[in-house]
Write a protein that binds this DNA or RNA. Structure first.
Lengths: 220, 220
DNA sequence: GTCGTCATGGCACCAAGCTGCCATCCGTTG
DNA sequence: CAACGGATGGCAGCTTGGTGCCATGACGAC
């Protein structure tokens, strides 16, 4: 049995001061998961500005990035800088960074007002590998930014979700409309509206997009 | 800045001996991510046998569980024991356990023959929360076992994936068949076969299922 | 060679889905 | 009250999808 340490830093300023060089030293891989653009303040975001040849940078966001101030701008800048970006319907609640499979930075939840947020840096190989593996798994099921931009996750109201559930259940329009207690015509109108909202040209595409939006549990 | 430790154990026997009681002490939540059933040997799996009232147990596997020996049996046993199970198309490459939001166990990759595998136990709150958040994100996009059992991810050959891509692209059957260089009749036949393989009753359902199987990148 | 099997493609027909048009029934506004 | 916008439902007609039937051609087994 061996023991190795975790370094916990208090506040972003300390993070930048003490880990900035570390983050900036990424050579092969830089993975970052966050809910929105505000996650790492400008100070943190500004480290790692210079492009590094051979460095693969991947950022994972929630659908909220676009809603927050500065989100679209940030994404545009990142996309230009050869950063791979994907959107996950369920954003990670805590931010995480993994660099070169060597270390991981994990952010604590936003703390009470005034209290500085803490950031923990791990170097232990099993832990870094474990965090990285989870990141990869989420990455695999997330949507590429370009795809997302073509048709961002729309906000669906309850009626629209009901239609979606009917479709997911595999009913014909006939039975689905009866189950929902509306006419066939209305049901079809709603399906059409839904497909427009999803930016889908076929019901198959609508199915694809629906799964992205709802996660895998449209019946929930 | 503070430092807190990680405990690394060598081999499952040491894990069971030293962390068995810890794992067994789960009171509220027990999360486990693994590629297949062989992940934790019988010794590890046997701890935590007694049902604990109020304890929520969630297990996340890859599609490989069913292929490995003992997989279906294990799942059947777990399902009976009120364990929530979901299947992710991209299984986590490293196993992870999070207990009561208090600590996480992360397994190293399978080591060379003879070498005991190592397991690292973390208690630092930020790290545990970070690992847990990533688990949750994967969980959200994974498929419930019951759903999966109704139609497990089939193995698709290249022709079938080509059809799938066409559908995902939103082409009509007419254009899709031309693009694939086959007749309309043949294309439709293939779509029908695909839907059967996917266990889908409508193209919408096929879309849902397709996304589950391919992750979110059918075009790749 | 002759089978049998299998994937293909053409044809036809039916079922399902899509949508334009119009009438109706709200609830709101003036 | 009338006027309006918005959601609804019925109808009709067109497009798309789904499938049974049969003919053809490729391939391997016999």
């Amino acid at each position: 049995m061996t023991t190795r340490g975790i370094v916990t830093l208090r506040g972003e300023s300390e993070l930048v001061r003490r880990a900035g060089a570390l983050l900036d030293g990424a050579r092969r891989e830089f993975l970052c998961a966050a809910g929105g653009p505000e996650t790492w303040s400008a100070a943190v975001r500004n480290i790692r500005r210079r492009p590094v040849p051979g460095l693969s940078v991947r950022k994972l966001y929630g659908p909220g990035v676009f809603d927050e101030a500065g989100g679209p701008e940030l994404l545009a800048r990142l996309a230009e800088a050869d950063v791979e970006i994907r959107i996950s319907p369920a954003p990670p609640a805590h931010e995480a960074i993994v660099v070169d499979r060597r270390f991981a930075v994990l952010a604590a939840p936003r703390s009470a007002a005034g209290e500085p947020r803490t950031y923990s840096i791990v170097q232990q190989p099993d832990v870094v590998a474990g965090v990285r593996a989870l990141f990869e798994t989420v990455w695999e099921t997330a949507t590429d930014l370009a795809t997302y931009c073509r048709a961002p996750f729309p906000h669906l109201d309850e009626a629209e979700r009901a239609v979606l559930r009917s479709l997911a259940a595999g009913h014909t329009d006939e039975t689905a409309s009866r189950l929902l207690g509306v006419s066939l015509r209305t049901y079809r109108r709603r399906v059409a509206a839904l497909m427009t909202a999803l930016g889908a040209r076929s019901r198959f595409q609508a199915g694809l997009r629906a799964r992205e939006i709802l996660g895998r549990h449209p019946d929930a």
